[in-house]
C-alpha cells in the first residue's frame, strides 16, 4: 500500500500483470457465505467480531450464495444438511472456494464411528480448498486458514484459465 501514501501529482500509470491485479482484487474481497452449522460457528462469529475482525481481510458476510466467493463450512455436517450444502455450493458463482472448519467438517470428528446421521467429512459432497483443524478451532486458526486460501488465490491465473 506504500504507493498510496503519496499523492499522485499528475495522472500516472501503474504497470502490473493482469493476473496479479485480478488476483489481488479477488483475494482482498473474499465474500463469505453467512451460515453456521454448530459450535464452530460460534468461533466463526468471534472471528467476525471486533477482537479478531475478519473484515480486515476483506471478508464480508453475504446472505445469498449468489454473491459469495467462499463458503466456510463451520461445524457438523449431518446427512440432512449435506444435500442443502451441496445445493448452496452449486448456487455460488465460480471461482468459488471452500474452507472446512473443525474436525467434524474435516472428517466426522467425534462422530466418526457412531454418527449414523453425520457425513464423515464435507469433502464427500463438495471440493475443499483449506482444512482448518481443531475442535473447535480458535478464531486465529480460522484467520490462518483464510490467509492460506489467499495464498492459493494469489497463485492462480484467471487469464490462463487454470482455475478449476
Amino acid at each position: 500500500m506504500g504507493i498510496l501514501n503519496y499523492k499522485f501529482e499528475k495522472s500516472n500509470i501503474v504497470i502490473a500483470s493482469l493476473d496479479g491485479l485480478l488476483n489481488w482484487a479477488r483475494l482482498s474481497s473474499l465474500y463469505q457465505m453467512q451460515f453456521g452449522l454448530a459450535c464452530c460457528a460460534i468461533e466463526m462469529m468471534a472471528a467476525s467480531a471486533s477482537n479478531f475482525d475478519i473484515m480486515r481481510f476483506g471478508v464480508i458476510p453475504r446472505a445469498t450464495p449468489r454473491q459469495c466467493d467462499v463458503m466456510i463450512v463451520s461445524g457438523t455436517v449431518t446427512l440432512k444438511m449435506a444435500t442443502r450444502i451441496k445445493r448452496l455450493f452449486d448456487q455460488m458463482p465460480e471461482p468459488r472456494y471452500v474452507i472446512s472448519m473443525g474436525s467434524c467438517s474435516n472428517c466426522g470428528g467425534p462422530y466418526w464411528e457412531h454418527g449414523y446421521h453425520v457425513l464423515k467429512g464435507v469433502d464427500r459432497v463438495i471440493p475443499v480448498d483449506v482444512y482448518v483443524p481443531g475442535c473447535p478451532p480458535r478464531p486465529e486458526a480460522l484467520l490462518e486458514g483464510l490467509i492460506k486460501l489467499q495464498e492459493k488465490v494469489r497463485q492462480e491465473s484467471l487469464a490462463k484459465k487454470t482455475v478449476r
Binding site: A82, C107, Y116, K120, R124
Partner: peptide
C-alpha cells in the same frame, strides 16, 4: 438392532 446404511442419497455413511 439398527445397522448404519452403507449409502444415504448417494453419500457414503461409514467412516
Amino acid at each position: 438392532d439398527f445397522k448404519v446404511p452403507e449409502f444415504y442419497n448417494g453419500m457414503k455413511v461409514p467412516y
